[in-house]
Amino acid sequence: MARFPFSAIVGQDEMKQALLIAAVDPAIGGVMVFGDRGTGKSTAARALASLLPPISAIQDCPYGCSKDDQARYPDVCGTGPLRKRPVPFVDLPLGATEDRVLGALDLERALRSGEKAFEPGLLAKAHRGFLYIDEINLLEDHLVDLLLDVAASGENVVEREGLSVRHPAKFVLIGSGNPEEGELRPQLLDRFGLSVEVRTPGDIESRVEIMRRCAAQEADSQGFADDWADEDAKVLRRVDRGRKRLVSVTIPDAVLHKAAELCMAVGADGLRGELTLMRAAKALAALEGAKTVGQAHLVAVAPSALRHRLRRDVLDETGSTARIERALDEVFA
């Protein structure tokens, strides 16, 4: 069955924007999507991964390395010519062990030939693609720590059972969860670049359109995908052009000052807020074809870049999104 087209997803504009920003600039630090069940969280992530163009990878490399990776990691990369392969999309199950995630000794090979060899884990398979964790708030804390460390450094280091392996592991980390089933620890949530709130559509028209499109996809998935192929191609061109423009997009000092003012106004902890706000606004500007980041880009990404970095205020229980909107009104008045 063909995957549900990214452009056919009804509504959820903030989630789609965050995923596109992460696709343009993976250094953003991943996307956390909290919201109701059945609102298209995993569908959107899978659709974006399948939409992106194939990557060029070393033919015999177990990590899907590029030529640049091969130069940096000659001991682990394979050999052979470059060949095209789909952008990886790896699901990390909640019950996964540390060995399954990081990689471990290849026991079958060790028993058969007595040779110590490394069996790559899920992080290796996700290199240059997406690592998706559903119900991440139920994942064991030590695994979340490991994942975030690897996502930040771009490489996985395994030293155990007589093995010492260092391999590339650059991926966009996407986590989703339902707040009713438990919250993610604040210090871990802060490590995600963007945080998105997804809600069940509140209008009849959107709900009816979702039913129509789901029914059409179930009846003829390939035909439905073909119907949306042109729209998906437009999204793909936006991402491709955005990646190429990203380096040349400039950020005026006035916009940087506004970003700092906004973070101070909402009481964001640390400096990750400013840095993520700057990167996300720059990526959005690149997506839209702008040469310079403007205040409109800053306003558009502020909720997703800052809502998970606010200190809890016992005197203000209106919610982080409402606090950010008030601060935007003050700073950009």
Rank of each mutant, 00 (worst) to 15 (best):
G38V: 04
A281D: 07
A290K: 13
E325P: 00
G175E: 03
Y132G: 02
K16R: 05
V165Q: 00
R166G: 03
E209S: 06
P5V: 05
H308L: 01
A283P: 03
Y132M: 02
A333V: 14
V249M: 01
V101G: 01
R46C: 03
A254S: 13
L298M: 01
L111A: 07
S248I: 02
L277D: 09
L188N: 14
T200S: 08
D106E: 08
E205Q: 12
N137R: 05
D232L: 07
R109A: 15
I251H: 04
D141E: 15
A169F: 10
A286V: 15
A215S: 12
H142R: 10
L315K: 07
E274G: 14
A225G: 07
A151E: 06
A71N: 13
S221P: 10
P88F: 03
E181A: 04
K170E: 14
L173N: 06
L52D: 15
R237L: 14
F192E: 15
P303T: 10
I21F: 00
G270E: 14
A281S: 11
D269F: 10
I210V: 07
D91L: 07
R207E: 09
T43N: 04
R3S: 13
G177S: 06
G202Q: 12
A96P: 05
A117N: 08
S113K: 11
L310H: 08
T97K: 04
D226K: 09
A23Y: 04
D329S: 07
Q70R: 05
A305Q: 11
E183G: 02
Q59N: 14
E155Q: 10
D99S: 15
Q17W: 04
D68I: 04
S66V: 06
F118Q: 03
V172W: 09
P93H: 03
T79G: 08
A322Q: 12
K291V: 15
F34M: 12
A169Q: 06
D316K: 11
F4H: 02
V150L: 06
E181L: 01
C61A: 13
A254I: 12
G267P: 06
R326G: 01
I251M: 00
F4L: 06
G193K: 04
